[in-house]
Each structure stands twice: as structure tokens, then as C-alpha cells.
């Protein structure tokens, strides 16, 4: 029995390291390295720059969605609306730029604001109307899906006549190097990381997820902060939507369903606990990279796409299983 004055023993300290959540991240990072090594041996093409660029590029959209939703998941919530929400922001960007003829920059801002609005409505439903996050965001998911189709007339909006729109994602501000989309992804990682670990928003995100009632009793306006957190996640959705539109040079109103689950998978693989209170954006970034390395590697090895999905399913099981083991260790 430990007492009030006892000093931590060596085994206590070891336990602390294991339980600190660092383990899951180290594990995720190690898995990423192992995967990269495995695929480089399995296929000569894997480590070629064009392939790596492809992997990074394919990580961006899911990755940015996952970053935003990490905030929500750390509060103990879930956001199912990010997939179709992203679609709606793409479509709105198209509406602003193509239909209304607004300057590109205003279109981008409009897209991000649309995302923020979707997040805000979800946050409002969750905190003010007290609808469970799963249901509130499921409803939002369907609303966004429907609206995308209604607004676009169920057909894609093309940006072909908008000069340079494609370059937002695929161009490169440093010519010849990595595409902007990848840079934007890393920028979002940085912004998210600062928000989560250096600001009061981050502190309350963890606090709410760790013990919402205690946070409320500590005099914190939990409702307000939850709305802010969902809105931030919505901004990330907006950024993802703009990048998606730019990559495809079009807003595809039927795309997006299912992206939310891939993003949540990336968050979980990255070690964020679905029960709230624990998680990190670096973990989510690694989680998203693991998913795209897996998909890419398996494809290079000519494994059919159907099987790729099966493998990713098992990876999620494995990741959550390790998370459970970690909790049991307590």
C-alpha cells in the first residue's frame, strides 16, 4: 500500500511511463517505421519519391479531417458529419467561386466558414440541446449529404474555368518540391498541436473528456467550450473540403460518405481513446500516415482493394486492443 509520504519506486515509474499514453504513440510510430521497411523490401517502387509523394498526398484529406475530429473525440464525443460535411464545404466553395463568381480567396474562406458552421450546429445540438454526439452528428451527416446534392443539383461543379484553383492543392509554393496540400496538412498539424497543447482550448478539451462534471463544477462553461471545440473541428473539415475540391478540380457532391469513419480510424490508430481524456495530434498524424502507407503498400504489392480494406480493419482491431491492454495495466 502506498502512503502519503512514500516515494515512487522504480516499478512505479516504469508503470507511469507505460500508462502515460506515450506508449501508444511510440507503438504507432514504430508500426509506421516497420511498415515502411517492410514495403520497401517487398517492392522496389515503394521508396521512390513519386510514390512517397503520392502517399503524403493521399493522407492530406483524411488526415486533416482526423486532426479536427481528434479534438471532438478527446472530449469524449464523436463527429460523424465530417465526411459529408467536407463534401458540403467543397460544394459551397464551388457555389461561391463558380456560381457567384467571387474571388478564389473568398471562396476558400466561404468553404471554411461553411465547415465551421456545420461544426457549430453539431456542437449546439450536443451541448445546448443535449443530443448525444453520435445521434446529433449522424443527423448532421445526413443533412450535409442531402444539402450537397440539393445545392449542386446532384452534379459536380467544375473549377476548370477558374485559373489556378487546381494549384491550391497540387501546385507547389517551392517549385519542384512537395505539393501544397501536403504542406497545408503539416501546417494544420502544427496549428492543431498548438491549439491542443498550448492554449486554454486544448486544456478544456482534455478536461471535459477526462471528467465533464468535475470540469463543470470547477466553474468552467462546458457548454460554451464544447461548441467552440466542435466549431474548430468544423474548420478543419472546411480546410479538407477546399483541398478535396482543388485536388479534383471539382466539387463532387456524391463523394465523402465514409470518409468520417476512415478519419476516426486514423485517430484511434494514433492512440486517442474513444472514451475521451487521452489523445494527441501527432498520434493522429501517424495514424493517418499508417492508413495511407498500408493502402499504398498493399496496392504496390498488387493486393486487391477488397483485401486492403480487410487488412485495415484488422489494424484497427489491433490498435484498439493495445489501447485496452494499456488501460488494464493501470
Amino acid at each position: 500500500m502506498s502512503t502519503l509520504t512514500s516515494n515512487p519506486t522504480a516499478s512505479d515509474q516504469k508503470k507511469r511511463l507505460v500508462s502515460s499514453g506515450a506508449l501508444q504513440q511510440i507503438l504507432a510510430f514504430a508500426s509506421l517505421i516497420i511498415l515502411v521497411i517492410f514495403f520497401s523490401i517487398a517492392s522496389k517502387n515503394f521508396l521512390q519519391w513519386s510514390n512517397i509523394e503520392g502517399i503524403l498526398l493521399s493522407t492530406t484529406v483524411i488526415g486533416i479531417l482526423a486532426l479536427g475530429t481528434t479534438f471532438v473525440i478527446i472530449t469524449g464525443g464523436i463527429d460523424l458529419s465530417i465526411g459529408t460535411g467536407m463534401t458540403l464545404t467543397s460544394v459551397m466553395t464551388g457555389v461561391f467561386i463558380v456560381f457567384l463568381g467571387l474571388p478564389v480567396i473568398l471562396g476558400i474562406i466561404g468553404g471554411i466558414v461553411t465547415g465551421a458552421l456545420i461544426g457549430f450546429i453539431s456542437g449546439f445540438s450536443v451541448s445546448i440541446l443535449r443530443i448525444p454526439p453520435f445521434i446529433a452528428t449522424l443527423a448532421m451527416m445526413m443533412i450535409a449529404e442531402g444539402l450537397s446534392l440539393v445545392i449542386s443539383g446532384a452534379s459536380p461543379i467544375y473549377f476548370s474555368d477558374v485559373g489556378g484553383f487546381n494549384n491550391i492543392a497540387l501546385g507547389s509554393i517551392f517549385p519542384g518540391s512537395i505539393p501544397n496540400a501536403v504542406l497545408i496538412f503539416f501546417l494544420m498539424v502544427l496549428i492543431g498541436w498548438i491549439l491542443l497543447s498550448k492554449t486554454i482550448i486544448g486544456r478544456y478539451t482534455f478536461s471535459i473528456g477526462s471528467n465533464e462534471e468535475a470540469t463543470r463544477l470547477s466553474g468552467i462553461n462546458v457548454k460554451k467550450w464544447k461548441m467552440i471545440i466542435y466549431t474548430i473541428a468544423g474548420c478543419f473539415t472546411g480546410v479538407a473540403g477546399v483541398i478535396m475540391a482543388s485536388r479534383l478540380n471539382s466539387a463532387q457532391p456524391a463523394l465523402g460518405m465514409g470518409y468520417e469513419l476512415e478519419a476516426i480510424a486514423a485517430v484511434v490508430i494514433g492512440g486517442t481513446s474513444l472514451s475521451g481524456g487521452k489523445g494527441s495530434l501527432i498520434g493522429t498524424m501517424i495514424g493517418a500516415l499508417i492508413m495511407s502507407v498500408l493502402t499504398n503498400g498493399l496496392r504496390i504489392m498488387s493486393i486487391p482493394q477488397e483485401w486492403q480494406t480487410v487488412v485495415i480493419g484488422f489494424v484497427i482491431l489491433l490498435a484498439v486492443y493495445f489501447d485496452m491492454l494499456r488501460k488494464k495495466d493501470r
Partner: peptide, 23 residues
């Protein structure tokens, strides 16, 4: 309270100064 009102995933200092952390 009997059920301690702490946030288990936050540190000791973060718990004590929750809502009035130095900014």
C-alpha cells in the same frame, strides 16, 4: 465532494488551477 471531482487525465497543477490557469 465524496466522489472526488478531479480530471484523472490532467496533472495535479492543471487540476488545481483549472479555469484560472496562468495565461
Amino acid at each position: 465532494h465524496q466522489e472526488l471531482n478531479l480530471m484523472p487525465d490532467l496533472t495535479v497543477a492543471e487540476n488545481i488551477f483549472i479555469g484560472r490557469e496562468p495565461r
